[in-house]
Nucleic acid binder design. Structure first.
Lengths: 121, 121
DNA sequence: TCCTTGCATAATTAAATAGTTATATAACTA
DNA sequence: TAGTTATATAACTATTTAATTATGCAAGGA
């Protein structure tokens, strides 16, 4: 797959909150489909489809353990996506856009939100 | 807009190669719609739609100069997206995933690709 | 062997997306 | 004022996406 197409798939996969939540869950360790589906209102086949999207993007991989097919995170495509964003960062760094300042600002704001009414992501 | 929804819009906007190319162009300075449309095969209304997507995501803003409506990059949503990805980076850093190594590896590979057959992004 | 668990897949539907052509409008130019 | 340039918008169409229900199948447990 040429880089541009993988970026398409990666960003498209990241564009859905359910899928981002799944990745967040997998960041703390592998999990079965049933485990991953539990927190959501939607059905198991819907989750399986989301997992397929994440897998096609290379963001997760499938293991096997009896009937379970545990998923786990794969870093590479996220690294590619980060790399793409970093290219822009370089353009803005030291220029009028002040990306670092923005990031810091957002971090402290996030902290404030967390203490005020619990984290919501 | 709550953060999760803005992330949806940002990543969805980044998922299209035409829109990423537009952002890449805007990274070197503002440009009119006609200028932005020139390198592409598709029609001007198609480009206007892409610009609308980028604008709804807050990634660009619209200026005015006579009949022109020059667009320019806005850093904030990209900073948010980067921030999200950085959260994962933290999880992997120093762990078995080695995100930094991957990024370096990709950079040198990119260099090789460029020298071999020109950059293609 | 029969039942249950875990997951995948097919068929269907509704909504969103990406493009087209045609047209409207605002602002300059002669 | 008439024409031109720059852009936006409407109407339409094809494709993709996200969800559902129904069903199938492999692996393990009684």
């Amino acid at each position: 797959m040429i880089p541009s197409q993988r970026l398409d798939a990666t960003f498209a996969a990241l564009a859905d909150p359910t899928r981002r939540a799944i990745l967040a869950r997998l960041a703390s360790g592998e999990a079965s489909v049933t485990e991953l589906a539990k927190p959501f209102v939607m059905t198991q086949p819907a989750i399986s489809k989301h997992l397929k999207v994440l897998e096609r993007a290379g963001l997760i991989s499938r293991g096997r353990d009896a009937q379970r097919r545990p998923r786990r995170l794969e870093a590479k495509p996220l690294a590619e996506a980060t790399g793409w964003l970093e290219d822009y960062r370089r353009f803005w760094e030291g220029s009028f856009q002040r990306l670092d300042a923005l990031l810091d600002e957002m971090k402290t704001q996030k902290k404030r939100e967390r203490t005020k009414r619990g984290k919501h992501r």
